[in-house]
Design a binder for these strands. Structure first.
Lengths: 114, 114
DNA sequence: GCTGTATTTCACAATAATGTTAAATAACTG
DNA sequence: CAGTTATTTAACATTATTGTGAAATACAGC
């Protein structure tokens, strides 16, 4: 595991970590708050956070004895563009392929970004 | 690792497996053909294929002594819709948030599918 | 049936991932 | 500074992952 994309996919491969990200979508949280919904101990969550941080998916702050965790979705751009390449393979109707390409051509610039 | 999404992300976390998928985007291939570009042995590739198959990302056929491998991108729908939820967090311009939501509201139905 | 080609399974080794409990560190609070 | 709260690190156990070489299986063709 070395490249950014592998690091990202690997971090996302765990349901606990995805749940943490989902929680952080509602705003930053402390480690205790993130631990609360799960049946595992705080050190385990702490290590999940380390994995997420290494993947660049969260950043940490400091607020007194708290270490607030915030979402950083930037690495997901890479995932989105990786998966976008394969969209044509699950759009079952080949007739829509040209529509899709046209969409991509003139559409929302964000779709192509990165 | 149990749920489909974890299975999919986990399968995608390896660069060799992603390279295999990229190769299969050009059409089905035999195990030998898939092994050729890599510095690892065929048994190793065979196991990567097993991982991809368990994730539903490839299907296998039989053609004489060959076991052709084909791409099945269906599980990537789940990845696309999972990541789509987080798009708003990497679209740096908050001004575009309403545009994005409007897009989602009226836009291509495929964007919301699954 | 024997031989060659393609692929998988076996037995094994090395390393990574995930969780636990106990101890250490950081910072607030009186 | 002593005590309390929040979090991380250490030491360890368990299980997964990934790779190897050797043997087994599947099929084709003579």
């Amino acid at each position: 595991m070395q490249d950014q994309l592998s690091l990202t996919f690997s971090a996302l491969a765990d349901p606990t970590r995805r749940a943490i990200l989902a929680r952080l979508a509602h705003g930053e949280a402390s480690v205790s708050e993130l631990t609360e919904p799960f049946a595992i101990t705080m050190p385990a969550i702490s290590r999940h956070l380390k994995v997420l941080e290494a993947a660049g998916l969260v950043t940490r702050g400091r607020n007194a004895q708290y270490r607030p965790v915030m979402l950083d979705a930037a690495p997901l751009k890479g995932v989105a563009s990786w998966v976008e390449y394969y969209r044509r393979f699950w759009d079952q109707s080949f007739d829509r392929m040209d529509v899709y390409l046209a969409e991509l051509q003139k559409g929302n610039p964000d779709d192509r970004k990165q």
